[in-house]
């Protein structure tokens, strides 16, 4: 088995996903199968093959450095749960 329950809990926490204790075993099993598949793929000799960064065989198009967006704060903030003086309000984060 590729993964342990502690790994699954850690990954879930990093992704901010809530996973209950009775779901853990199922995830360990399914995610392990994916990892096993990757292990199998890693047996292929890929020496000399450039890693693929993107399935499209094209390069990034660039845009000119021009300001094209106008202020739409009011529109965007209609979607926010709490706003004060133009700032989005969130539970306190401090270091």
């Amino acid at each position: 088995m590729a993964l342990y329950p502690t790994d699954v809990r850690q990954i879930a926490h990093l992704a901010r996903l809530e996973v209950s204790d009775d779901e853990i075993a199922d995830y360990v099993d399914k995610l392990s199968q994916i990892i096993d598949l990757v292990d199998q793929l890693q047996q292929v000799d890929t020496g000399g093959v450039v890693p693929m960064a993107h399935p499209l065989d094209m390069s990034q198009r660039l845009r000119a450095d021009e300001v094209s967006e106008e202020n739409q704060r009011e529109l965007f903030q209609r979607n926010a749960s709490a706003v004060t003086d133009g700032l989005y309000r969130v539970p306190k984060v401090i270091d």
Partner: peptide, 15 residues
Amino acid sequence: KSVHENFDGESGIDL
């Protein structure tokens, strides 16, 4: 940027 002053238990976010 986060603003922590004057938000009484919350933070203000300026993007």
